[in-house]
C-alpha cells in the first residue's frame, strides 16, 4: 500500500475479490433500473401511433434497433477487453470478454429474428442477403465461434488469450465484411432500415426507441456483471478443486 493512489485503485480493480463485492452491491440497483426502464419503454412503445408507411410494424423497431445496437456495442466491449487481455494481461479482462460472448450472441439473435419478422410483412421475404443483414449474420457466427473456442479449452487463461486474438482480428474484419458485402450486393435499395440520424424519424418514435435502447443497454451491463461474477466463481471452483485434489494426495 505504498504506491500512489492511482496504482492502488488499479490494483484494487484488478483484484477479483474486490470486483465481486463491488458487483454484488451494484447488481441489484442496475437490475432495478433496468426493470423500470423496460416498463417505461414498453409502455411508450405500445401507446405511440403507428407510422403511416410502416403501419403497426414500426413497433418491432423498438426491439430490433436496440438489439442490433447492442450486438455491436457488445463486440466493442469484447474488443476492448481483448486489448486488456493482450496488453495488460488483466485477469478481469479475460473474464469480461468470455462473459460477454453469449450475451452478444443472444442480442444478435434477437436482432436477426425481429428483423426477419419485420421483413416478412414489409419486404415479403424473411431474409435478403443485403449488406447490413449479412454482416450482422456474420457477426452472429463469430460470436458462436468464440463461444465454441472458449468451451473447447481447459486452461482459462490460454483460452482467453487465444480468443482475444480472434476477437481483435474479427474487429478488424467486420468493416471489411460490411464494405465488401455492400460492393457484392448493389441490388438492394438503401435506407430500408430505420436510421437514427437525420430528420427521417419522428420524435414520436424516437423517444420510445431511445428509452428502449437505454433499457437494453442497462440490461446488457447487468447481465454482463452477473456473468462475469459467475465466471470468477467458476474459476475459483476450478482452483479449489485442483487444490482439493492436491491435498487429498498429501493428507490422510
Amino acid at each position: 500500500m505504498t504506491e500512489s493512489l492511482a496504482i492502488t485503485r488499479f490494483s484494487d480493480l484488478a483484484n477479483p475479490t474486490r470486483f465481486l463485492s463491488l458487483a454484488g452491491r451494484i447488481i441489484p440497483w442496475l437490475a432495478g433500473l433496468t426493470l423500470c426502464l423496460f416498463a417505461i419503454g414498453l409502455y411508450l412503445s405500445f401507446t405511440t401511433e403507428g407510422d403511416y408507411q410502416q403501419g403497426e410494424t414500426v413497433r418491432i423497431m423498438y426491439v430490433h434497433v436496440p438489439a442490433a445496437w447492442l450486438s455491436m456495442m457488445c463486440y466493442t466491449v469484447m474488443a476492448l477487453s481483448a486489448i486488456g487481455t493482450l496488453v495488460w494481461r488483466h485477469p478481469l479482462a479475460d473474464v469480461s470478454h468470455k462473459a460477454a460472448a453469449p450475451l452478444g450472441a443472444a442480442f444478435t439473435l434477437i436482432a436477426l429474428a425481429t428483423g426477419s419478422l419485420w421483413g416478412k410483412p414489409m419486404w415479403g421475404t424473411w431474409w435478403v442477403w443485403d449488406a447490413r443483414l449479412t454482416s450482422v449474420f456474420v457477426l452472429f457466427l463469430m460470436y458462436l465461434g468464440l463461444i465454441a473456442l472458449n468451451r473447447a479449452m481447459d486452461d482459462p487463461s490460454k483460452a482467453a488469450r487465444l480468443s482475444a486474438v480472434l476477437i481483435l482480428v474479427g474487429f478488424v474484419n467486420i468493416p471489411i465484411i460490411k464494405f465488401s458485402v455492400e460492393w457484392w450486393n448493389t441490388l438492394h435499395q438503401p435506407a430500408s432500415v430505420v436510421r437514427l440520424d437525420g430528420p427521417t424519424i419522428d420524435p414520436e418514435f424516437l423517444i420510445p426507441l431511445l428509452v428502449m435502447a437505454v433499457a437494453f443497454t442497462f440490461l446488457f451491463f447487468t447481465l454482463h456483471l452477473m456473468a462475469m461474477r459467475n465466471e470468477i466463481w467458476r474459476r475459483r471452483v476450478g482452483a479449489q478443486r485442483r487444490m482439493a485434489a492436491r491435498m487429498a494426495g498429501r493428507g490422510t
Binding site: 481447459d154 476450478g238 478443486r241 485442483r242 482439493a244 485434489a245 487429498a248 494426495g249
Partner: peptide
C-alpha cells in the same frame, strides 16, 4: 482417496 470423488477426473494427478 475418499472425499474427492466429486472432482472431475481430469483434475487428479497421474497417481491419483
Amino acid at each position: 482417496l475418499g472425499g474427492i470423488a466429486h472432482l472431475p477426473f481430469g483434475y487428479l494427478s497421474a497417481g491419483q
